[in-house]
Design a protein around this nucleic acid. Sequence first.
DNA 1: GCTATATATCGATACTTGCCAATATAGATA
DNA 2: TATCTATATTGGCAAGTATCGATATATAGC
Lengths: 111, 111
Amino acid sequence: MSIMTSPTDVACCRPVTEAALDDASAIQLAAVFAVLGDPVRLRLFSLIASLPDGSCACDLVEPLGRSQPTVSHHLKVLFESGLVDRERRGRWIWYSVRPEALASASILITC
Amino acid sequence: MSIMTSPTDVACCRPVTEAALDDASAIQLAAVFAVLGDPVRLRLFSLIASLPDGSCACDLVEPLGRSQPTVSHHLKVLFESGLVDRERRGRWIWYSVRPEALASASILITC
DNA sequence: GCTATATATCGATACTTGCCAATATAGATA
DNA sequence: TATCTATATTGGCAAGTATCGATATATAGC
């Protein structure tokens, strides 16, 4: 799956409980939730988020108990959704959270 | 999919960005996100949430543009996840949001 | 260039899920 | 009881996805 626009672009900035979402906003917001809706991917995201300076991809395979290709796949989904950033450092790639992406989702589900 | 425990039972009450989720918490929390991760279901939820007294199921089929069984299916998923409540009133069934369920998810993704 | 290592992509498979048509269930009313 | 209506369930199909082994790409160091 690929999300073309960043979650921060979601037009609606009001809680989902305040006014019914239009179709387009629902598609964008649901895409963010879907990314976080897989347990392995959510743990992966939380592992990255738990370290302030981000995480090397090399440190994420073992704690997840999944193969390297599988972790790489989930990292790609997280990156393309705009939830994490990616930076190459020499041979390694460092992932870090994009706080503003999470914040927009948080605002929407706050009553 | 069926979620046996309510989202409010999720053990962890800290943001996912603060400490890495353990496996069990990730499974529970991801289940909530997965429920909201379908655009039709998210719109359905937002339709119910937008009316303070809840919504009759009979008023939810037409605006979603899906068949009655499909809407019924999504309502079941929402109910079993603990995100909405259900009450029979005569021939009709009224759905309303359970605010505390959303709140727990909101806390977890707040930075 | 050659080798070693870190990450990504490919291809295949098993499982999940969103959807609808048909049917069942349950309450209301006569 | 019979009938009408609102909602739920069943069955099946098509599309999506999580997973892994094998392979490709890219960087570092020699």
